[in-house]
């Protein structure tokens, strides 16, 4: 059994756990958390697969995710903050 394979299996199992969390919720933010987890696991999975299959030039893909995966989550924070501030300003107008 290759050492890469063991890590890959651990990552795949955790991916399933994250998907279960994303499907079960219960709140919206649990799902955001699951997506976040899934993103990190994808970076790790891609790096390990690049080594397992000997295609080390293709680490660019993992690097892409490591760099820009958090932009989506930041956008969620902006979105929630905006919705919250609109709601509170509407409340203060009443």
């Amino acid at each position: 059994m290759n050492m890469y394979t063991i890590v890959l299996i651990a990552i795949l199992v955790t991916m399933v756990l994250a998907v279960v969390r994303a499907l079960r919720g219960p709140s919206v933010y649990d799902r955001v958390l699951a997506v976040n987890m899934f993103g990190t696991k994808t970076v790790l999975f891609l790096s390990v697969v690049a080594f397992l299959s000997g295609r080390r030039d293709f680490l660019d893909l993992a690097l892409t995710y490591a760099l820009i995966n958090f932009v989506g989550v930041l956008a969620i924070l902006v979105f929630v903050q905006r919705r919250f501030s609109v709601a509170s300003s509407a409340k203060s107008e009443d």
Binding site: Y29, V32, N36, L59, L67, I76, L77, R83
Partner: peptide, 27 residues
């Protein structure tokens, strides 16, 4: 590339956790 990945992950992963927690708290 791996060192770059690790550096960026160590910066972005806690940041996105912060964003998720803050979004939940704000809501």
């Amino acid at each position: 590339k791996l060192v770059a990945i690790i550096l960026f992950l160590m910066l972005t992963s806690p940041t996105s956790s912060y964003a998720v927690a803050n979004a939940a708290l704000l809501s």
